[in-house]
């Protein structure tokens, strides 16, 4: 089932001279884990915001084409309606904090209260996301006293608690240490395995390669390619788009070793190890 359909989407921010998104077309099936890559200003964050309706409802600007999220056409539905279907974790967690709550616990409750979840269920859901994101120990802290990493975990927790069918994340682990990002990616993967559709914009190519089913490559507001990590990262013109493949792909490219029987280079540590040991893949 197609969960998200984007057709000929064009968008220009107010006062901007050029299109931030230019004729973007793709679709995503339910339960897919999709990565969005591209250099800065390629349109990744704008596309994320177009999926949750902040583009165009919040930012205004010129808008053309169609975005249909779980049957709702974004243009014709309010951000509030869309928020029941799709949740978004912002790039900078500071931007997402409400500023009206004095504890992490209350902050996570904010979205749930807004959509009218019963009190007992709110408590259950908060306890479960505190555990999932491993921030139980700071539940009584003020959100603005948290470290960058803790605040990012809280931002993700508040969205996951709302149990959206579709989860959009804009660089969700930028403030986290490597062990922390791995933990968060695994938490997202477990949601994806439960059937939640995940769309994630990210610069950490190794993580994209390891976790995503398909990767959307953007450049100057246009879709260059939408395919498996193996196909995308094996493209010879990747650097022309300001991107570097995972280190495992780069080293195999330099050595000219592809996965046995394919035209693709390895993209993960495990694949690279197998190929370089000569076991094939």
């Amino acid at each position: 089932m197609k969960k998200i359909i984007v057709e000929g989407l064009k968008y220009k921010y107010p006062l901007a001279d050029s299109l931030a998104l230019n004729d973007v077309t793709f679709d995503i099936k339910q339960g897919e884990f999709i990565g969005i890559i591209g250099k800065n200003l390629a349109g990744k964050s704008t596309l994320c915001q177009a999926l949750v309706g902040l583009v165009p409802h919040f930012y205004k600007g010129a808008y053309g084409g169609k975005v249909i999220v779980d049957g709702l056409e974004v243009k014709n539905h309010s951000i509030a309606d869309l928020s029941l279907k799709v949740g978004m974790v912002f790039q900078n967690p500071f931007t997402q904090v409400t500023g009206s709550k004095t504890t992490v616990y209350e902050e996570i409750a904010f979205g749930l209260e807004n959509i009218g979840i019963p009190r007992t269920e709110i408590i259950e859901r908060i306890d479960s996301v505190l555990d999932l994101l491993n921030i139980e120990q700071v539940k009584d802290h003020n959100p603005f006293d948290l470290s960058g990493g803790q605040m990012q975990r809280m931002a993700i927790a508040s969205i996951i608690a709302m149990k959206p069918d579709i989860l959009v994340l804009d660089e969700p682990t930028s403030q986290l240490d490597p062990a922390g990002s791995e933990e968060v990616f695994q938490a997202i993967q477990s949601l994806s395995k439960q059937g939640i559709t995940v769309i994630l914009a990210e610069h950490k190519m190794e993580k994209i390669a390891q976790y995503c089913d398909r990767v959307l490559l953007l450049n100057n507001g246009k879709v260059v390619d939408f395919d498996t990590p193996g196909k995308i990262f094996s493209r010879e013109d990747l650097e022309g788009y300001g991107l570097t493949a995972p280190v495992y792909t780069r080293v195999c490219k330099a050595l000219g070793v592809k996965k046995a029987g394919t035209d693709e280079y390895p993209v993960t540590l495990e694949e690279a190890e197998r190929v370089l040991r000569g076991d094939g893949a």
Binding site: S174, H203, G242
Partner: peptide
């Protein structure tokens, strides 16, 4: 943390 949010360039 200078490299947060930076692309390759």
């Amino acid at each position: 943390e200078p490299t947060i949010a930076q692309d390759h360039g």
